[in-house]
Design a protein around this nucleic acid. Structure first.
Length: 560
DNA sequence: ACTATTGGCGCG
DNA sequence: AAAGCGCGCCAATAGT
């Protein structure tokens, strides 16, 4: 069963297939959805990020949906549906960012985000079905659309539930490293002491170490030949000021990125001042490759330094899981490279390369593999990549072809069919310029450089994008398994909070589930089963493993 | 006073 | 060591 939903002008249109539509005041939507959910319909709506937060606030969750906006974006650009009316139509409302984009809060039913014409919503669904039906091998795109839509549900749920965060632990951690919280705008004591030390040792009394040009001038005045103030360059310098300077930079980064101001803005404290929640705003499909982006709070960059503040509620546990070397494994499967898949049969694909004599050390294996995936040409990686080419011609052939296609200005697609954007007009201009009769050597060099740059992008696109598809399937399947575990008879850890095991964090190849302690083992098993299922969904019976590191912990800092 | 860009660095 | 992909965010700086 499918139910199409359209919101607008204070009303909600519910259009179950084969039944007469219902029009109700928008406040009644949660109750209506909840009532229909027992039939386990697929909810078809314009935009999960627009409608689902309000349902979650009302305590209503749904099993599955079809997100027209996200799916439109995929079909609009996919090579497999390029000839469809959906793809060839002029830019329309489905190509625009969601209206919630401008809000700084999760949209409610009362935010008037403009109206969706119910007929237009149904028409868009029809165009999407038609585009799929005309595509060669539509099964893959169908899987991608289902996974993308499930991801949208997960993203909204995780934003709603939040990542368990203990502000007291965070504060203790900051105080230990930086000194007690200073008044607004002032440097914490330890940071100021380090700055003063640097000023004294460089003989630069007024120096603000946060200013790269000032710092560079001070270094030069002290006789140090630095070209930039990057830490890996500073590390090479031999001077007593360098050690305190690097320590200053490390702590200044912590303060500005995840200090007290960050906590005030992004962590909603719990009633008891502990057990707060960090509510990042996930953006499914926010990255060209299909990875998620996030907005606010820098959830993609939670530094290891502060992960100790991610703490399970009393009586609850965190199940932290990440996949070992997803990208090479996905590449092996896409390329049907049995030899490379065999090297990944154990828990550590890099060690597998060493055991097969492809390279001599694990470190070299990693450098070589990343070099092949990213298109390294120089340095150590450039030296090592040819060994992989020899050992795994099928796998490396896939990324090489993707690179050649990009260099020539073409588009490439992931395993499930998400297609890379074409190069921008400026790129084509540069290529045309280079082939004109009066082109200068500089023009040709620029064109070659840009061609290679775009080739590295498309090279990586197929792998990063397919890995993102694997991760979406993992997430979607895991979500279903967690729902099946129920709440285990344990009430929510606090009023208004999620009951039962629920996803609280996702980062490319890593998930965290928050769960009642006695369900932790079941959750760990579910996480592994979902990973195996994701491999089957994408690659069928091709024998590729996706081994996980799974840890059941009280604090994120204990994992990995 | 405001916005856009740059340099730097965290994450995968 | 900082090449070789994808991001978001901060403070300082440049531009208007």
């Amino acid at each position: 069963m499918e139910v199409v939903v359209a919101l607008g002008a204070g009303r909600a249109h519910l259009m179950p297939d084969g039944e007469p539509p219902a029009v109700v005041p928008v406040e009644e939507l949660p109750a209506r959805v909840d009532a229909l959910e027992r039939h386990r319909p697929r909810w078809v709506w314009a935009d999960t990020a627009e409608v689902y937060p309000a349902l979650l606030s009302a305590g209503v969750r749904v099993e599955r949906c079809h997100d027209l906006r996200l799916c439109h974006a995929i079909l609009r650009h996919a090579a497999a549906t390029a000839a469809s009316p959906l793809a060839t139509a002029p830019t329309g409302p489905w190509d625009a960012a969601g209206a919630w984009d401008a809000l700084d809060h999760a949209p409610t039913l009362l935010d008037d985000l403009g109206a969706w014409d119910p007929a237009e919503v149904r028409a868009e669904l029809g165009r999407q079905h038609a585009a799929l039906a005309a595509a060669p091998d539509p099964g893959r795109l169908r899987l991608l659309l289902a996974a993308e839509s499930a991801g949208a549900l997960v993203a909204a749920e995780m934003r709603h539930d939040g990542l368990p965060w203990d502000p007291q632990v965070h504060d203790r951690l900051l105080t230990a490293l930086l000194g007690p919280r200073p008044p607004r705008g002032a440097r914490p004591a330890r940071l100021e002491a380090l700055a003063e030390q640097v000023r004294a040792l460089l003989g630069a009394p007024g120096l603000n170490p946060d200013s790269p040009p000032e710092l560079l001038r001070a270094l030069h005045a002290a006789g140090l030949e630095a070209r930039t103030t990057r830490k890996w360059e500073l590390r090479e310098l031999d001077h007593p000021a360098i050690a305190p300077l690097l320590e200053y930079k490390r702590l200044a980064r912590l303060l500005s990125a995840n200090g007290w101001a960050w906590m005030d803005e992004w962590v909603r404290p719990g009633a008891d001042g502990r057990r707060g929640r960090f509510h990042p705003d996930y953006v499914p499909g926010g990255v060209v490759t299909g990875r998620w982006a996030t907005r606010g709070g820098g959830a993609l960059q939670l530094p290891k330094q502060v992960r100790g503040a991610v703490v399970a509620d009393p009586g609850w546990r965190l199940v932290v899981a990440d996949v070992a070397q997803v990208e090479p494994r996905v590449l092996a499967a896409m390329a049907r490279d049995e030899e490379m898949a065999r090297a990944g049969r154990g828990a550590d694909l890099y060690q597998g390369l060493v055991d097969r004599g492809v390279v001599d050390t694990r470190a070299h294996a990693k450098v070589a593999m990343l070099g092949a995936l990213y298109g390294a040409t120089t340095g150590e990686a450039g030296q090592l990549v040819p060994r992989l080419t020899r050992a795994f011609p099928r796998a490396t052939g896939v990324v090489e072809r993707a690179a050649r296609t990009g260099e020539a200005g073409g588009v490439v697609s992931t395993w499930l069919g998400r297609t890379s954007p074409p190069p921008p007009e400026a790129w084509h201009r540069a290529q045309r310029r280079a082939s004109e009769p009066d082109a200068q050597e500089a023009d040709r060099r620029r064109a070659r450089q840009q061609a290679r740059d775009w080739g590295r992008f498309t090279r990586n696109f197929v792998v990063q994008g397919t890995a993102a598809e694997w991760a979406l399937c993992w997430l979607a399947d895991l979500r279903v398994r967690l729902r099946a575990l129920g709440d285990g008879g344990v009430p929510a850890s606090d009023v208004g909070r999620a009951r039962g095991p629920h996803l609280v964090f996702f980062l490319h190849d890593e998930v965290i589930v928050h769960c009642p302690a006695h369900l932790a083992d079941d959750v760990a098993a579910a996480v592994r089963a979902a990973a195996a299922e994701a491999g089957r969904l994408l690659f069928g019976s091709f024998p590729v493993d996706f081994p996980l590191d799974v840890a059941v912990v009280d604090s994120y800092a204990e994992a990995g």
